[in-house]
Design a protein around this nucleic acid. Structure first.
Length: 496
RNA sequence: GGCCCCAUCGUCUAGUUAGGCCUAGGACACCAGGUUUUCAUCCUGGCGACUGGGGUUCAAAUCCCCAUGGGGUCACCA
């Protein structure tokens, strides 16, 4: 929905409120990016609040993983865990007393009431309603209780606190979707505080957003139907609700909300698989938003400079892995040798090709090798596969079937290889400039009236064992004279 | 099923707010050529969409209605 840009005069305060029950999810990553960009663009603040009230599922490890994931994305927060801030604490579990105080206010004002119904009665009610094909909802039995009666029963009976949904209708002026109206009659008198005094999500989210003076709430579309409940709480509290913007869902290949079922939803998986971070960020921004109709590759700075919630699309976005891979390649192909060296390092060591020490000691060689692989990979993790041949034992280099087939196509392969070996030997030992070797080889081939493949295919097989790959003379330069000659000699025998 | 959201190439999207510039643009993927010592990169071209039906209008992908389809959500989870 495109509208005149909505830039409120109040201080912009947005938030992300992950619950630490797993690793950082792609959906959270994108929501964070959008919130972060909005705050940055308007000079506002991003608040990180950990919604750890589900004590059974929340873990410290998960929280740590999420914070780490947010850092990896390049996002940061102005208030929250680690950095602190004026609205501490930023862990929801530590705010319960505050929540309960608000609940008491609502009880006193009559906007909430005690419900003494037992689980059994509620279950029966639900079954009955389901049997009649009605939408299950509380029948408001306890809403009729007089306050003195309610207070009296509260002494020795367990109860929940329900929100008293008023008559009428509630509209959400959504920054992404426009006005969405709900009939209050459709909204259940939902439980705000459980038996035992644990406040529930729809209630605490309002308490905390209000307490933290959140001005805009950007979150996934799955929250849209919760919004009227929350708006009603703000009203009951005499507060102005924040502006809401519900982002389209990210979908799996099957068109359903992206979830664990689809496999890779955790950011850490993409990190491990070697995607370019900037590409992933770029891609996530593109899920539901476009800079213009043309530009696919753009920086976070560009994103921040032009992000407007009104431009966000309303339809869900299917996650296209192919396009992400392509984008990752675009970023990797544009990297400097130093950036590449840094990003490929973990994959090189994990593959056992080079140790961390060697990476430093042979830094120049390593960078040159990476340059040969650069345009051939789309993920950092593909680099070991592309450069692996450089590290093989010369005599037992593995020949790819296609490479060998290409080499054996040429009946004079052994003769030409031998002749070239003889020709190359004195030269290569004098110096290994790829440029010189290349020009020389081409001249040599021309002199002997050969076609390029007649020499190059067997040579490629002998040197790299692969049917394709980087320029052969750059490869020789990297291999050095000794290994180059050794591989050539081995090839002469092996291709006989 | 109730409520809510959504609907442009297979996918991501531009165009929809202020109807004509749209014989609908870009990108991924795919296909075909070209460049290259090969692979990759790169370049060129091709394929390919306004869900359907009614309106409104001189004019609709754009506005309205209905239908259809897809999704979300219906907890003492967040």
């Amino acid at each position: 929905m495109k509208s005149p840009e909505h830039i409120p005069s109040e201080p912009i305060r947005v938030r992300i409120a992950p619950s630490p029950t797993g690793t950082i999810h792609l959906g959270l990553a994108r929501t964070t990016l959008y919130n972060w960009a909005f705050a940055k663009r308007h000079g506002g603040k991003l608040i990180l609040r950990v919604e750890d009230t589900d004590r059974a599922r929340s873990t410290a490890e998960s929280e740590h993983a999420i914070l780490e994931g947010l850092h990896w994305l390049g996002t940061d927060w102005d208030e929250g865990p680690v950095v602190g801030g004026p609205h501490a604490p930023y862990h929801q579990s530590e705010r319960v007393q505050e929540h309960l105080a608000v609940a008491r206010r609502l009880l006193e004002s009559g906007d909430a009431y005690r419900c003494f119904c037992t689980k059994e009665r509620l279950d029966d009610l639900r079954q009955e309603q389901e049997a009649k094909k009605e939408t299950p909802r509380y029948d408001r039995l306890c809403s009729q209780l007089a306050s003195d009666q309610s207070a009296a029963r509260a002494v020795d009976e367990p109860f929940t606190l329900r929100f008293r949904v008023p008559e009428g209708q509630t509209a959400v002026d959504d920054l992404v979707r426009g006005r969405v109206e709900f009939q209050n009659a459709e909204i259940d008198d939902w439980v705000m505080v459980r038996q035992g005094g644990q406040p529930t999500y729809n209630f605490v989210v309002v308490c905390d957003d209000a307490a933290m003076e959140i001005s805009h709430v950007f979150r996934g579309e799955e929250h849209l139907v919760n919004t009227p409940k929350q708006i009603l709480v703000y009203r009951a509290l005499g507060l102005e609700p924040p502006a809401f913007g519900h982002l389209p869902l990210m979908l799996g290949q099957d068109g359903r909300k992206l979830s664990k079922r689809h496999g890779a939803v955790s950011l850490s998986k993409y990190i491990a698989e070697g995607y370019s971070r900037d590409a992933l960020v770029n891609f996530l921004c593109r899920q539901g938003w476009a800079l213009d109709g043309e530009t696919e590759i753009f920086s976070v700075e560009q994103f921040i400079a032009s992000f407007d919630p009104g431009d966000v699309s309303r339809a869900g976005a299917v996650f296209d892995f192919d396009k992400l891979r392509w984008m990752s390649g675009e970023y990797i192909h544009a990297e400097s040798p130093d950036e590449l060296a840094l990003h490929c390092a973990p994959h090189m060591t994990a593959a056992g090709l080079m140790t961390a020490e060697e990476l430093v000691q042979r830094g120049d060689w390593y960078r040159e090798a990476l340059c040969l692989g650069q345009e051939r990979v789309r993920l950092y993790s593909e680099m070991p596969g592309v450069l692996g041949f450089l590290f093989a034992a010369d005599a037992s280099l593995e020949y790819d079937a296609k490479a060998e087939k290409n080499a054996r196509k040429h009946s004079e392969r052994v003769a030409e290889l031998s002749a070239y070996h003889e020709h190359l030997h004195p030269m290569i030992e004098l110096g290994v400039d790829a440029e010189v070797l290349r020009d020389d080889a081409k001249a040599w081939v021309a002199e002997r009236n050969l076609k390029f493949p007649q020499l190059f295919q067997p040579l490629r097989c002998a040197l790299t064992g692969a049917a394709g790959g980087p320029d052969l003379f750059s490869v020789m330069a990297l291999l050095g004279p000794e290994a180059s000659l050794a591989r050539l000699a081995a090839g002469i025998e092996r291709l006989a």
